[in-house]
Design a protein around this nucleic acid. Structure first.
Length: 493
DNA sequence: GCGGATCAC
DNA sequence: GATGGTGATCCGC
């Protein structure tokens, strides 16, 4: 899971969407196993300048708002833990606590309310800087960490550096964009709003037709992978705070280290300040690769086309495997009783639990976490929910998918990074996906059509290309009879 | 097509 | 003292 790669061994970016078919980096799988299955392009979103009419086409001025379109991984590591097999069927209550900014840190609770001008005023020395760092967003397994304390240390160690100066200057530019967007937002008239309302609702209906809920998408993510491999090979490291990487940058930290707030993508010298007894281990990519290959062998038994996104993360489509087992189960049970088919959720969970056990065996005891959902965007997010060594399933119907996603902070969505997170929060007051949906008219007013469309799909828990294709395949596989009628019933609102 | 920005790992 | 390296994509020019 986590692993930022820079440090030792030299620069090893993970494979991204839309990459060439042959991954020339760490995961050298010539047969394309290392690229993501759905190569949808990212796009970047721009705010229309207040002066230029938004409408179609170009808009001069203003800046970038976001990039998007992918079901990318949260860098979510979990902490190392050998026991505690967990399995989770998602239900709304369970996820409530996951919601946005529950953990302390009032400093981040910014100036959302008044859309006026507090441009330069907010120079309150260090109070508001956590968002400048990638590694300050919350991660699995760091619940007990005193975030404000960590943020303070990070700030103290950084404030005079060139890095910080650069980050601040970038942030300032973004503040300007935020300011422009706020102005744009204020220009939203009632009549404009009502025309947007009909436009957007028509779009929702169209998107809804792309929904397909019967695909079993699974994201498997190894728990703090590099650190886990190192601890497997050096068991005495297990009860000590340890990080893979160096003084410059940390790839992965074990759970002991995370108790101190140490995490991936954090510079080692800051980590050392947070945890003076931290042990640094240099990375051994050959071992990670070798173990990863063994894991891949297991995964291919379940989906021969499974894709490794990196050494520690894989995307599988288990639709066929689960369906096959359902049939098996039904026919064997039919001899005894009337044999109702086992629920899709139940069978999928069972298959994934089995898969994870095999992964653990094949990797010499490493644990992984998994997310199951009707599309990969959701599965990716779900894979982080029960980390470490657990799995989370989003039931295969529309309401569950939406409820699950709506409970999430927008930052959990692949493609929304720290810049977009701040923009959404400060311009629209949006922190969760539910709020994203509530503010869809405002978004359509202020952002480019492309941006708004993408965000609407996110808010509806639809992953378009992905699902449309899967649905088409499913329909043909199933034939055109009544089953096809059933297929359409799944997409109905 | 380039430069800048964002996101991902 | 000090904050990785790389690919992909998109926008504005």
């Amino acid at each position: 899971c986590s692993a930022s790669t820079g440090v030792a061994g030299g620069a090893l970016p993970r494979e991204q969407k839309g990459a060439p078919a042959y991954c020339k980096y760490w995961c050298q799988y010539p047969d394309q196993t290392c690229i993501k299955r759905t190569g949808s392009p990212r796009h970047r979103l721009t705010a229309a300048s207040p002066t230029s009419g938004s409408g179609s086409g170009r808009c001069a001025g203003a800046g970038v708002v976001l990039m998007a379109e992918q079901e990318e991984e949260e860098v979510g590591d979990g902490f190392w833990e050998e026991e505690g097999e967990e399995e989770e069927v998602y239900s709304p209550e369970d996820l409530k606590p996951v919601a946005p900014d529950t953990g302390g840190d009032e400093s981040l609770r910014a100036t959302t309310a008044e859309p006026g001008d507090q441009d330069e005023s907010a120079k309150v020395e260090g109070s508001n800087t956590a968002h400048l760092f990638v590694f300050t967003n919350d991660k699995a397994g760091m619940g007990k960490v005193d975030k404000s304390k960590v943020n303070k240390v990070v700030y103290e160690m950084s404030k005079d550096s060139a890095y910080f100066a650069h980050a601040s200057s970038q942030d300032k530019k973004n503040d300007k964009r935020i300011h422009d967007l706020r102005e744009k937002l204020q220009s939203l008239s009632l009549s404009r709003r009502s025309s947007l309302a009909s436009e957007v609702s028509a779009l929702e209906i169209k998107l809804e037709k792309q929904r397909f809920c019967r695909r079993v998408c699974v994201v498997v993510d190894m728990d703090c992978y590099y650190a886990a491999v190192e601890m497997r090979d050096n068991p005495h490291l297990r009860d000590k705070p340890m990080a893979v990487g160096g003084i410059g940058m940390i790839s992965t930290a074990n759970y002991k280290a995370r108790e101190y707030g140490v995490r991936s993508a954090m510079p080692g010298f800051i980590a050392l300040k947070l945890c003076p007894e931290l042990i640094f281990v240099r990375s051994h990519f050959d071992k990670y690769k070798e173990t990863s290959d063994r894991v891949l062998t297991v995964l291919r038994q379940y989906d021969p086309h499974c894709r490794m996104m990196s050494l520690d993360e894989a995307y599988l489509d288990l639709t066929e495997e689960v369906s096959r087992r359902q049939v098996e189960e039904t026919s064997s049970k039919a001899n005894l009783e009337g044999g109702a088919q086992m629920e899709l959720e139940e069978m999928a969970s069972r298959v994934v639990a089995e898969l994870r056990a095999k992964v653990q065996e094949a990797s010499g005891g490493l644990t992984c976490s998994a997310g199951l959902a009707p599309n990969f965007r959701l599965a990716k997010i779900a894979s982080d929910v029960k980390k470490p060594n657990g799995q989370c399933i989003v039931p295969f119907h529309r309401e569950a998918a939406i409820a699950f996603l709506h409970s999430m902070p927008v930052r959990k969505v692949g493609g929304i990074g720290k810049v977009m997170e701040k923009t959404l929060k400060e311009v629209f007051g949006v922190e969760t996906v539910a709020e994203l949906f509530e503010k869809r008219l405002e978004l359509f007013h202020c952002l480019t059509p492309k941006s708004s469309h993408w965000l609407l799909r996110v808010a509806l828990a639809i992953h378009h290309d992905d699902e449309a294709k899967a649905m088409a395949e499913w329909k043909t596989a199933v034939g055109d009879g009544e089953d096809a009628a059933e297929a359409t019933s799944f997409q109905s609102v």
